[in-house]
């Protein structure tokens, strides 16, 4: 119409320039840091990083926890989403609201609760000691289990939301129809529900996995320096040892892992059909 491109660019560019200058350029420089050396391009930073057993174990732990959290979230998410979708209208809105709500609340608050639950004098230890399962409180905080629980609690809602909206798009009578045709519930899940919701699974899976990779507060509070993850390791590298090359490597790994997760999940989803 009477809309010309110059006008459009004038409207869009401030945001783009802002993002470029304050985000893209600095991040790009940071990422390039590990590739630079006195002699020009170099991969030494990466070689050094992975030469350290500690770094390797943190990398693997991050990967493992990310996969575990995303996998558990998918399993619980399917069960919960299926139940939510089958609820009558009003109850459904309320339950869905209760699932979304935690997302709005400070992750510090959400993580802190686990200290109360898992701490030396927390309810779990009270129960263990009270039941005589152990003479003294056992260490639950600063374990991978604690970090796992914290991350799962933090990101499960994202999976449930993605799966609920995917399931809402399943035509109404498909599942009863499959049942009538003699499919077992397991069959219904793998032959009907899963194929029809795989996009939701991809979105939810990516969100949860990426979220778990890049969460800082949860591993910081519940893992401490005993259970480092890449984010907390990055913080240490910068704040304790001023090691910006390692920080740059970790940054690259985190970004690459998020992208890879999305690609892999998409691949799995399309392979199934």
């Amino acid at each position: 119409m009477f809309r010309n491109r110059r006008e459009g660019l004038a409207l869009a560019l401030p945001a783009a320039i802002f993002s470029t200058l304050l985000f893209l350029v600095p991040v790009a420089i940071l990422l390039s840091e590990a590739f630079r050396s006195d002699t020009g391009f170099s991969l030494q930073g990466y070689v050094d990083f992975f030469a350290s057993p500690l770094n390797r174990s943190v990398f693997l732990r991050t990967l493992k926890l990310g996969v575990l959290v995303a996998g558990s979230a998918a399993i619980i998410g399917y069960a919960a989403a299926f139940c939510i979708v089958n609820l009558p209208g009003k109850a459904r809105g309320t339950v869905f609201g209760m699932v979304v709500l935690p997302l709005m609340i400070s992750p510090v608050a959400r993580t802190y609760a686990w200290i109360v639950i898992l701490g030396r004098t927390g309810i779990v230890n009270d129960a263990i000691v009270g039941l005589g399962l152990s003479a003294s409180p056992i260490r639950l905080l600063f374990t991978e289990t604690a970090v796992f629980l914290g991350l799962l609690q933090l990101f499960l809602p994202l999976m449930i939301i993605s799966l609920v909206s995917a399931m809402e798009n399943i035509p109404r009578d498909v599942i009863p129809a499959a049942r009538v045709l003699g499919a077992s519930w397991l069959n219904v899940f793998f032959k009907v529900i899963l194929p029809l919701t795989k996009e939701g699974l991809v979105i939810g899976g990516t969100l949860v996995f990426t979220g778990a990779l890049t969460a800082y507060i949860t591993p910081a509070i519940l893992g401490g320096s005993k259970v480092l993850m890449l984010e907390t390791l990055l913080y240490q590298k910068v704040n304790v040892s001023n090691d910006f090359v390692s920080a740059s490597v970790i940054a690259m790994i985190l970004i690459a892992m998020s992208f890879a997760a999305n690609l892999v999940l998409k691949r799995i989803a399309t392979a199934r059909s």
Partner: peptide
């Protein structure tokens, strides 16, 4: 508007969501 490079602008503006916050903070 039918902008030249609309996809690029969209990606640039959306990028801070994709990159972990700690990296953004450090880079800044």
């Amino acid at each position: 508007y039918d902008l030249p490079g609309a996809e690029t602008i969209r990606t640039i503006v959306a990028a801070p969501i994709i990159v972990p916050g700690i990296i953004v903070g450090l880079a800044l």
